[in-house]
Every structure is written in structure tokens, then in C-alpha cells.
Design a protein around this nucleic acid. Structure first.
Length: 259
DNA sequence: ATGGCAATGTTTCATTGA
């Protein structure tokens, strides 16, 4: 199974690029974030034409997540939101595909350390930990994927000194990320040798992308039962190039068939 | 020291993102 997470930063703007990317890469499951599209306006026809069924949890302007599942695969038990954490913001959609529970999240950005949005982010991450604990006991084969808005380690940051203590890199955020790992989840990207300076997000400003001044904040975390099946994980930097790119690149994990 | 880019709706600026 080829599993992808990609923050598209508006599906309205990015649909042509997404469809091109799907045609070129033919993933099995695609977790999208920041669709910024109401469910009633989701481009189901175009996605279906491309050979995918879409399960959506969106809203206008902000947030919004979706799961695209390639024809021939079935998505069951679709669920939205975090249990026990009522939230107007549409940030979570989960489904079971080919025996794998895929939990797709758009973790809050947090804006600035100490802000109300930062407090919301930390509370959200705690609620996600509790939800994941329950999901894992029900579904041992689980992939927790999405834009997590946390750079877990210094090597995930182009300039660790400049980002020290800043939002996306602060210690409480990193502690939340480690809490997810403590549930038995494994960072698929770090299971393999990777070129130094591999990131998943680059600011649109200041030529950040050509200078590779980025962060690795989009992740595929695999449960202990699923991680051994992961045979590759990479970030498609090319998808950040060209006309009207998202500021995020897709992260791709390949899972071998069950033994 | 500042803002710098992009998307969106509140649209010719303000807000948000990361």
C-alpha cells in the first residue's frame, strides 16, 4: 500500500496539481489537509474521474481534511473529529483501508508560543494522544498521518538555533510528539537513511524553498504492528516546485503486503 | 528593525498560516 500525506493549502487552488500528482504516482491512500473546502463543494467528480473515492470533513476558508482511496480499495468505519474534544475546526478524519486504520490529522498551527492558539494546540495534542490510545487498542495496525505542525528534532529544522523555542519547535510541542511515539508509534521517515536537510514545508517568502530553509512537520507514524511492513518512506520535494505549489510537499510511505 | 508569500473573505485590506 502506498500511503501519502499532503497539506495542499486549498484544494480549490491545488486541484489540478493534485490530479497530476495522483496520475503520476498512483498512491492507494492520500490524506489531505487544509482543503479549505465545504463538503458540498468538494470536487468529487474530478477525484472520481482520477480513480479515487473521497471521504471528506471540510469547512470553508480554514482547515478541512479528506481521505482519498483508490478504486478497488474500500474505506470502512469512517470517523471524524477527536472523541471527547468538541471542536468547530475540522481537523481529523479516519478510516480503515485494507485492514489499516488511517488517522489523518491537521494539527493546529499554534501561531506563537504563549498565545491562545498555542494553548489550544497543546490541548488538542493531548486529546489526540488519548484518542490514539483507544484507536490503537481497537486497531493494532494503525497509521497516524498528517500535518502535525511539529518539527520533532533539531535535524528536522534548517536553522535549529534560529527556531529554538519557537512555535513548531518548542519543547512542549516536541513532548507531545514524543507522547505519540511512546504509544508505540514509529516515525516512518526515520526508519530509513535520509539525505540531511530533507524537509516537508518551506515558507513562501524569502526564497526559502530554493535555499532549502524548511522544516519537517508532516509525518507518517506507524504502529508497532505496522511499522515492520514499511519498506520505504520519502518526501517528494519536486511537488513543491513550479507554478502555484503548496508550501508543503507530500510524504510517501510504502507498506508491503501482509506476510 | 522590518517584512518578505499565498489564500481567503471581511476584498483593494485584515487575518491566518508556519
Amino acid at each position: 500500500m502506498k500511503l501519502v500525506t499532503w497539506n495542499v493549502n486549498s484544494l480549490n487552488v491545488r486541484l489540478p496539481r493534485l490530479l497530476d500528482w495522483l496520475a503520476a504516482n498512483r498512491p492507494d491512500v492520500v490524506a489531505l489537509q487544509e482543503t479549505k473546502t465545504e463538503d458540498a463543494k468538494f470536487p468529487h467528480d474530478e477525484v472520481r474521474e482520477a480513480g479515487y473515492a473521497a471521504h471528506v470533513f471540510g469547512q470553508r476558508t480554514y482547515n478541512g481534511v479528506a481521505l482519498l482511496v483508490r478504486d478497488g480499495l474500500a474505506a470502512t468505519d469512517v470517523a471524524t473529529g477527536l472523541p471527547g474534544f468538541p471542536d468547530e475546526q475540522k481537523r481529523v478524519i479516519a478510516a480503515t483501508v485494507d485492514g489499516v486504520r488511517v488517522v489523518n490529522v491537521y494539527v493546529p498551527n499554534g501561531q506563537a508560543v504563549g498565545s491562545d492558539k498555542y494553548a489550544y494546540k497543546l490541548a488538542w495534542c493531548r486529546a489526540a494522544s488519548a484518542a490514539l490510545r483507544d484507536e490503537l487498542s481497537a486497531h493494532p495496525e494503525l497509521a497516524f498521518v498528517g500535518d502535525m505542525n511539529i518539527a520533532p528534532e533539531a535535524r528536522d529544522v534548517h536553522d535549529p538555533a534560529a527556531w529554538e523555542g519557537q512555535v513548531l519547535c518548542s519543547e512542549p510541542e516536541r513532548a507531545s510528539f514524543r507522547e505519540w511515539l511512546a504509544l508505540g508509534l514509529v516515525d516512518a521517515f526515520r526508519r530509513f537513511d535520509q539525505p540531511p536537510g530533507t524537509f516537508s514545508w518551506w515558507d513562501y517568502r524569502m526564497l526559502a524553498f530554493p535555499k532549502n530553509r524548511g522544516l519537517r512537520i508532516d509525518h507518517i507514524l506507524l504502529s508497532a504492528a505496522l511499522a515492520p511492513r514499511c519498506v520505504a518512506c520519502r518526501i517528494d520535494r519536486n511537488a513543491r516546485k513550479g507554478e502555484k505549489p503548496s508550501d508543503h510537499a507530500p510524504v510517501i510511505a510504502e507498506l508491503a503486503a501482509r506476510a
